[in-house]
Amino acid sequence: MADLQRESILTLDNIRLDLPIAGIGSRTLAAIVDYLCLAVLWILWILASLLTFVALKDVPWVATWAPVVNLGGLFLLDWGYFAGQEIATGGRTLGKRALKLRVLTAEGGAPGAWALLARNLVRSLDLVFGIPLMALDPLARRLGDRLAGTLVVHDRGREAALFIGRVPPGWGPRELTLVEALLARAGTMDDAGRVRDMAEQVLRRIERDAPELLARIDTRSDPVAAIRRALEVEEG
């Protein structure tokens, strides 16, 4: 998550909270997915209306009302596809789900139905002005977001974390972050030799700052496991 663009909001007690703002790229991709889904729904709706009309053409009221239902359905799809989904799911359309995005209020809360409706009814204007506005705004807000007071953020859910249980004296956030990153990625890196090199460098640093942490630990056979044992790393 370190690569994400972040902007701060103030929460309770004026505590600053960084939101993982979704930028223009991911939002545009989500919109493309949604418009593709909308096109498919349009085609399906027209086909379903035609098939129903053909199958029931002898029923008198079908000839009268089938075009009305068809027209009403297309109108609702046009104006309601985005708003309906976001209201039903709390700020996620199919495209946003695919890209793991979610709509929040400018305060980081859950947007209400009115806000979700407002931000989606102005999409036609945003097809013209939305992209330049998102590109210029640090919060990547289009017109609809400004009108409704909403933001779109990345929603990647809970990620597994490694917590260090013992910290050698003199270690600060820089060392802690580095060791946590190494332990988290060691299993997924292809170059085992490089992983071993980095782990041995960390072990040397531990030996220099707190040799007692390495007492009775075999550091030669598996340096990564040795770091885990020395620093009492727990997964959470």
Binding site: L17, G108, A110, G112, W114
Partner: peptide, 12 residues
Amino acid sequence: AVEGTHRLIRDG
């Protein structure tokens, strides 16, 4: 904190 804010702060 982001998740908690989303769940506990409601618009309206």
